[in-house]
């Protein structure tokens, strides 16, 4: 059986908010390394991988590998009933029909208990190879969100170019064009506001802004975001949590082969 308790319900709330517009139904795979999720959007352009490690929970108990097939919209509905500071406990049998969620308020002795019906989801998992990226850029997540939102007003796609001096986001649309450049800067007082570029070689790729804007819903998970780019592989966008992560992969747009 599974029994996992989170100190703060907010963690799960944010994770679900971050991915529910990308995927509708997916399996939460519970095993002795924690709770994991891997899913693609309908058109298989983007992939989200989430991992909440066992340290995120106290206690964490999972005797057998369990796949919880969940409709994310339903899960979000139930999680709305939880306060951010509530203790949240997830429980499930070994071959479960339902996932049990208990919200306990620390302030008063309120205990709320919900069951969500599970579903059978036949999902294929993709093997994601370890990649040595040409460029890795860490920047404030709010900044990344702002850039994506601003450029999305002009165009469907953005070209991201990473060089030694900085990272440049540019787009061209019907009404005109736009570009935002972030120079490498190290903010000693507020490290979260730094832009740090680790570069092996300069790289430039084009991506759909619609998806990037969607990924930015995860900004509440972390103050910083890490973008990893290499020519001709999907972009990796990582939001690190205290003990776990949410990673998004986005396939690039490629020029015509003919």
């Amino acid at each position: 059986m599974l029994e996992a308790r989170l100190e703060q319900a907010a963690v799960l709330k944010k994770v679900v908010d971050a991915i529910k517009d990308l995927v509708q139904d997916c399996n939460f795979d519970c095993n002795d390394s924690g709770i994991q999720l891997q899913a693609m959007d309908n058109s298989h352009v983007a992939l989200v991988a989430m991992h909440l490690k066992t340290d995120a929970f106290s206690p964490y108990r999972c005797d057998r590998n369990i796949a919880l097939g969940i409709n994310l919209a339903s899960l979000q509905k139930v999680l709305r009933a939880a306060q951010n500071d509530d203790l949240l406990t997830l429980k499930a049998e070994d071959a479960p029909d339902v996932l049990n969620l208990v919200f306990e308020s620390a302030e008063n002795d309120r205990i709320a208990e919900y069951d969500i019906k599970l579903m059978d989801i036949d999902q294929e998992h993709l093997g994601i190879p370890d990649t040595e990226y040409a460029a890795t850029v860490t920047m404030p997540s709010s900044e990344f969100q702002r850039i994506c939102r601003d450029l999305n007003a002009l165009s469907e796609s953005v070209s991201i170019e990473a060089a030694k001096e900085g990272i440049k986001f540019s787009c061209q649309g019907d009404i005109g064009s736009g570009a935002v450049t972030l120079r490498q800067n190290n903010n000693v007082e507020k490290p979260d506001l730094s832009t740090i570029i680790e570069l092996n070689e300069p790289v430039g790729l084009t991506f759909s802004l619609k998806y990037l804007v969607n990924f930015c819903k995860a900004s509440s998970l972390s103050n910083t975001v890490k973008l990893s780019l290499s020519a001709e592989v999907p972009l990796l966008i990582e939001y690190k949590m205290e003990s776990g992560y949410v990673r998004f992969y986005l396939a690039p747009k490629i020029g015509d082969d003919e």
């Binding site: 298989h44 352009v45 992969y249 396939a251």
Partner: peptide
């Protein structure tokens, strides 16, 4: 218009 690539073009499914 340029073509949007798919995940399967890069990552292969783990066989069941």
């Amino acid at each position: 218009t340029s073509t949007q690539a798919r995940m399967q073009d890069f990552f292969k499914a783990i066989p069941k």
